[in-house]
């Protein structure tokens, strides 16, 4: 029994209720509309929930650190990314070379942060391009509706069936491997998922506009769009973008590993892993270990952050 109820019983039992309590309650102390729970705005609520998700926050922290290292990491290193030093080839990690050196004596530490630049750049660019194409295509499809929507959705359905890595390989073979072509090739096939999501959100929006117009909410319209619509529509888009990044990073590493990645002197993690493949048997573990570790950690970080965002942004879970 709660404290209030105990007190309640006490009052009944002792009949200690004073007569003057039976006066009508003054109106100003009555507030039927009073909200007793603090109402958080959608974004700060989502942020609070994300903060509580330890795994997602670890991911976010890692990504921030990685971005900083990608930008400033090479500054800490006395070695340049293309500095070839044949006498120093395949040296184990030391005070001079923190992550060791590769078969041309290049510093793995420095190259790892250059790899981070490329991986993050490819991932972010792919997500951004997907976002723009997806918003335009999905937006038109959802907004136009009817026949146009029907045709556009059929096209998406067909594109969805294409094995995207094969198409990307084909494009790279033709266009020749470079950073730009990798991003273009990934975007050619990658926007389909985003377009689907945006279309779904636009359909919701249309429906809501219709409802708003018919009920003439007036000044409240803007508020409703900001409070209800944007959170509902932006949530899935943000999550999709977050999850596009690791897919693109994987694709870049995969293609580099196939020999279709960017060319020397620049190094992506996939290229570094591919170059290090012969060392599996020789015992020069650091060659493979560092690029492998950072690809995996980065993908892991984006995945858990995406999961966390999904949980935090999904209004359905809000009770």
């Amino acid at each position: 029994m709660s404290l209030a109820e105990e007190k309640n019983q006490e009052l009944h039992a002792g009949s200690t209720i004073p007569d003057e309590w039976f006066r009508p309650l003054k109106k100003e102390s009555q507030d039927a509309e009073k909200v007793s729970r603090p109402s958080l705005s959608y974004w700060s609520d989502a942020w609070q929930r994300l903060l509580k998700n330890k795994l997602a926050m670890t991911g976010l922290l890692f990504l921030v650190l990685l971005a900083l290292l990608a930008i400033f990491g090479p500054i800490f290193s006395p070695h340049s990314v293309r500095e070839i030093n044949l006498p120093n080839q395949n040296m184990a990690p030391s005070a001079e070379h923190w992550f060791g050196t590769d078969e041309l004596g290049r510093d793995v530490f420095t190259r790892t942060w250059y790899g981070a630049r490329i991986s993050l750049f490819v991932g972010l660019m792919a997500a951004l391009i997907d976002f723009f194409i997806g918003v335009i295509y999905g937006g038109i499809s959802g907004y136009k509706g009817g026949r146009a929507d029907n045709i556009m959705m059929r096209i998406i359905e067909i594109l969805y069936g294409l094995p995207y890595l094969l198409v990307v390989i084909l494009l790279l073979v033709v266009m020749g491997p470079s950073l730009t072509t990798i991003i273009v090739a990934l975007s050619v096939t990658g926007w389909v998922g985003m377009a689907r999501i945006v279309r779904g959100q636009v359909l919701q929006l249309k429906h809501l506009e219709f409802v708003l117009a018919s009920q003439s909410f007036g000044a409240k319209t803007r508020r409703i769009i900001r409070k209800n619509l944007l959170p509902n529509t932006m949530g899935p888009i943000i999550v999709q973008m977050t999850l596009t990044v690791p897919t693109a990073i994987f694709a870049e590493a995969f293609l580099s590993f196939l020999g279709l990645g960017i060319q020397a002197p620049y190094a992506s993690w996939g290229v570094m892993a591919n170059d290090a493949l012969p060392t599996i048997l020789s015992g020069d573990w650091w060659r493979l270990f560092f690029p492998a570790l950072f690809i995996s950690l980065t993908m892991f970080a984006f995945n858990v952050l995406g999961d966390g965002l999904q949980d935090a942004l999904d209004p359905k879970l809000r009770e």
Binding site: F250, A253, F254, F257, A292, M299, F300, N303, D307
Partner: peptide
């Protein structure tokens, strides 16, 4: 999550 994050070739 680990399985999704670690590329198959790695």
């Amino acid at each position: 999550v680990l399985g999704i994050s670690i590329p198959n070739f790695i």
